[in-house]
Amino acid sequence: MLKLDAVTVRFGGLTALSDVSFEIPQGEILGLVGPNGAGKTTLFNSISGLVKARGQITFDGKNVIRLPLHRRARVGIGRTFQIPQPMHHLSVRENLAVAQVFGAGRYDPKRIDEILTVMELSHKADADAASALALQELKRLEIAKALATEPKLLLLDEVLAGLESNAKRTFMLKLRELHRLFGLTIVIVEHDIETISELCTRAVVLNFGQLIADGTPAEVFANPAVMESYTGTAHA
């Protein structure tokens, strides 16, 4: 469903992504791992259109690399930000409604209620999105907004960070539920090896902008090069 072919991103002299190629089949939950600054968020940015990339990004059989942001959202690429980006001065429900109308091209309040329920935001539906929500609620809103655009592919950037282990477990179940309920393909950035191993069927590893491993979580985390890149940053 998504195919990256020699995707390269440079910021001035810094090569944030260098010839990254891999493919994600429909329905997969893929873990994207790597140390801080490895280029994970940059990869999401290039897929969703926030940064200009070279190479090819094929989504559903079409090269989307020249499509502007909003068109990529409309063809079914949804994402969340590491730091939540609510649209303030809009209520939680309006955030979702706008996302649905402009992203999915239809208005279906029932579906919005469903998303609110799944993401446990119903009680804050009419609150102002930016000022009335706690950080974890903002993170759930981030996912809810992406879901409202009715994506086929969902890119999740460190949505589990900052949760203690019980909450993390609950949230993983939630992600599984979303995956099944909405028929999604998911790529998730996450530092915690256990989480990746439990949630994902496959993991790819970035280091200094290069793809250094691709396989099942067990294979990837048994790879010495991966563990070496990891030890500097991710003892957690």
Partner: peptide, 9 residues
Amino acid sequence: GAAQLMGIN
């Protein structure tokens, strides 16, 4: 940015 990602031109 967020608005664009919601499909708004």
